[in-house]
Design a protein around this nucleic acid. Structure first.
Lengths: 364, 364
DNA sequence: CGCCTATTCGCAATCGATTGCACGAGGCGC
DNA sequence: GCGCCTCGTGCAATCGATTGCGAATAGGCG
């Protein structure tokens, strides 16, 4: 009973269950673990409010005490609890990154594109003090986004790969601002997107093949995804506009799904005259196609020229090195983060369309 | 002035800034947005404490009121703030997943293994109510783990790929329990790891090549990483024990780094008699090797037989389909999460070593 | 030397949920 | 019919940081 008021004199935080530690706390104060701004305030001989302001770099505290407090915090390895801060400020300090992360069932699993993108996003977000909370989604029902938003655990969302979910995004974007998606830009879309111009990319790839003398050009990719569709459109435009004599062979849609080696082999074996040029909608498909061509005794670029899409790291090291359309993923990631932060602050931003770039290597 | 006491009678939460809304609050109560358990408590005519208990499924509330409250919460789409809960319970509700996520500079970028693993981890963690907070790390200095731990933003860590950081892990594991790493198990290690038996895997792969008649077996991989080293040890054991006549050709270490197509080509061109069997330390290396072999006019499995490691999805669809050592990533992910949860609860667990499995396809 | 205006700092409320403790109301036996 | 024991609820403190507002101290000026 004697301890309590004594403890209170030292600091009210010892008034309850720690009352019996009051004396000890006083003696061994400097060696006690600094867990809260109150502990640090006691050490510095100021109030918790001052510590909070000093650590937040507010101008209301004199620079002298601010520095002293910051040095103390540094010494004791103290970092204010982000939980408490977030509770008070009503922010989460985290961004949700949503990816159609499948396993066996989908193609994406083996697509290194996502990994690359995530790497850059992690950098950008960490640098700005946000955590990257990753979610995988199998968009079976249309309410996945709604649920994630209402869970309210992050300050905003970055969606990688809209594929066929553009409508869902649009619906939510109507009254949920902090959301940016990677991928195609569609006329009239409401949500904010960042991506390269797939039409231009398709155009450039196909035009390049024709410049190399190709006349029968096959397109490998599943145009059900918007991005791929736009690349196909670009390819069509290139063929019909630039070289009236050339021809574009599109994959039968029933084969356009996963596009495994077997699919490609089947397509080649039943396509009649083989194509002399292949425009693959991704580097992965291009590599697979080259393997199949090899196994059919066709040489690249001798018999068939191949162009990929994405310019992932392994495109440079394949045999032969792959000509491809480069998407600047680093820039894309930075753009997305910047736009998202603006939107978190309530600013309604437009979308960004980046220019793709043709990278010529030995496969064409 | 008249409103205030009235509001208080309705609920103390209107006593301050919302005092002027008191009357409205009373009338339009049911249409007001339910943001907190206090709001819901008001609706249900009980106290916030009861709401909290009901939503947490505690047995202290009668099942009747519990049900009623849960139904109300459902109707209004109310979910208690995880921030406030975590602050109070001193938990974070999130697990940090750490990956050596490089971009251009490292090989890992293009390794789909990580993506697969993350997919499964995301599932397991989400199912158990944890967020997956992803961090990439370039282990230049040895304090990366220490910093992440002291940041104290997650309940525990899953480290994917110890590579050469085993010592760092061990150091921290001494007084930080909630941490599980994927990868090799070393004798005497302190930290908890989950992984397949790389020695057995190397043994099986090499034995299989010898069963297929190979005599000159090349090992492709960088043994500086512990896992790879163990696979190499297994390969050595297989060669010396089973077929005294066989021979193991190890890559010169100066070539063992990135192992790009060029490296492999250079190796093959300067190795004198070419090998008749290749054991690649990853599927990615195996695929690259097969491409190089093709370009050298060597057939698989005719001239050279190739075994990979991991059994990633694309191993099945390569040309030819790749014989490989399967690591059950799904099981590994589940094991890691389960062990981690135990460790979060303070239980010191042992490590887990899973058995690899030889998957025979057409490349051998 | 006294008064006035800036600065600096502390008090206390607040964010939203959890939980030990105490209180009140039925159910039971005797 | 009375006392005791459960069971169900409510009160209020608490997690740790932020911030409006008021107090105190400092310095500037006449």
């Amino acid at each position: 009973m004697l301890c309590a008021p004594l403890a209170v004199a030292i600091g009210w935080r010892y008034a309850d269950e720690r009352a019996d530690q009051g004396r000890w706390a006083r003696v061994a104060l400097s060696s006690k673990k600094v867990r809260t701004i109150y502990d640090l305030a006691e050490l510095a001989g100021v109030s918790a409010a001052t510590v909070s302001r000093a650590l937040a770099g507010k101008s209301l505290v004199s620079s002298a005490t601010a520095e002293r407090i910051q040095r103390l915090a540094e010494e004791h390895g103290f970092r204010p609890s982000s939980l408490a801060r977030n509770l008070r400020t009503r922010r989460k300090g985290a961004i949700g990154v949503v990816i159609p992360l499948g396993h066996e069932t989908t193609q994406h699993i083996s697509d290194p594109f996502f990994m690359t993108m995530i790497g850059f996003l992690a950098d950008e977000l960490t640098e700005r003090g946000f955590d990257l909370v990753l979610s995988r989604v199998i968009p079976k029902k249309d309410d996945w986004l709604e649920k994630m938003i209402s869970a309210d655990r992050v300050d905003g969302f970055i969606i990688i790969g809209q594929s066929d979910q553009s409508a869902v995004l649009d619906k939510m974007a109507r009254d949920y601002l902090p959301m940016v998606a990677w991928g195609a830009h569609l006329r009239g879309q409401i949500h904010c997107s960042v991506g390269t111009d797939n039409y231009l990319g398709g155009l450039a790839a196909t035009a390049h093949l024709m410049d190399r003398g190709c006349r029968r050009i096959a397109f490998f990719g599943n145009p059900q995804a918007v991005e791929i569709r736009q690349r196909l459109d670009g390819a069509r435009a290139a063929v019909s506009a630039r070289r009236p004599g050339a021809e574009l062979i599109e994959t039968p849609t029933h084969l356009a799904g996963e596009l495994t080696a077997e699919d490609i082999a089947h397509f080649l074996d039943h396509a009649g005259t083989p194509p002399d040029g292949i425009f693959a909608a991704s580097d992965l498909i291009a590599i697979t196609a080259m393997q199949v061509l090899h196994s059919r005794g066709l040489t690249v670029p001798g018999d068939v020229k191949v162009v990929g899409y994405d310019d992932l790291p392994f495109a440079r090291t394949s045999v032969p090195p792959l000509t491809t359309i480069r998407q600047d993923i680093a820039t894309g990631a930075r753009q997305m983060v910047e736009l998202l932060l603006k939107r978190i602050d309530g600013e309604a931003t437009g979308s960004v369309v980046l220019n793709p770039e043709l990278v010529i290597r030995s496969s064409t």
